[in-house]
């Protein structure tokens, strides 16, 4: 079940943030939306997540008209740039949140929830931190918790909005390797927004280079690098 994005457009007031973006990604692939600020990549991601609605265009995924569904029902895990962790809850409660708010018939037992939290903390390499509060964690740790939280709901799509933007270079490298590892393990379709081309090329299966609300070029990293199709793309990649 591929992810099919077709001519999605959106204006904020009179500013056209997205000017008809289209791409197709196979199920389970890792797509990176790459571009400078103002290119529309975050807007597209937020539309995929149900945090904005598109003015026109369509998205099909898992045999569903994606854009007709509210964020709640999409089961698309979203990782925010500033983590958006629930500061008044412990790490465990944060991760368990998506499971606890499920309607009764789909809610796992508390024992199962506990188990899942521990598994996820191991997966993101933060064992034993269940009882900590976000304020007691470093930036890198918070982002791992945010990732674990998004994964807890067994998402069919994983969306990340410049998740490593606020972190230093060394932490960024570690985290993106872990992210790729987790993606491969879970097999979930992932869309990842960044302005850092090194990062995009290092982790993604497919890269969409964006400018002014449009996808200028889309393809495997190696292809895009070897055959830049527009002057903007070749300039952006050589920067």
């Amino acid at each position: 079940m591929p992810l099919t994005v077709d001519s999605v457009a959106k204006k904020f007031g009179r500013f056209p943030a997205l000017n008809g973006a289209s791409f197709v990604a196979p199920q389970g692939s890792f797509v990176s939306l790459l571009g400078p600020s103002g290119s529309g990549k975050t807007t597209l991601l937020r539309i995929l997540g149900g945090l904005e609605f598109a003015d026109s265009g369509s998205v099909r995924f898992a045999d569903l008209n994606w854009l007709d569904m509210p964020a709640r029902t999409r089961n698309a895990g979203f990782v925010f740039q500033q983590y958006a962790l629930f500061k008044h809850m412990t790490v465990a409660d944060n991760i368990a949140f998506g499971l606890k708010v499920r309607p009764r018939n789909r809610r796992p037992s508390s024992a199962d929830i506990c188990k899942r939290v521990t598994e996820l903390l191991d997966l993101v390499q933060l064992p034993g931190l269940e009882a900590r509060y976000p304020s007691q964690l470093s930036g890198g740790q918070r982002q791992r918790v945010a990732l674990a939280r998004a994964l807890a709901i067994e998402p069919r799509m994983l969306l990340l909005d410049e998740p490593f933007g606020a972190l230093d270079a060394k932490v960024r490298k570690e985290l993106r390797t872990d992210l790729r590892r987790i993606h491969d393990h879970a097999g979930v379709t992932t869309v990842f927004v960044t302005h850092d081309q090194e990062e995009a090329f290092a982790v993604a299966d497919l890269v969409a280079v964006m400018k002014d609300g449009r996808i200028e070029q889309y393809g495997a990293p190696a292809d895009v690098r070897r055959n830049p199709r527009t002057p903007f793309v070749s300039e952006f990649l050589s920067a």
Partner: peptide, 9 residues
């Protein structure tokens, strides 16, 4: 097709 639903916040 254009069913406008509420944004989360």
């Amino acid at each position: 097709m254009k069913k406008r639903f509420l944004k989360p916040a």
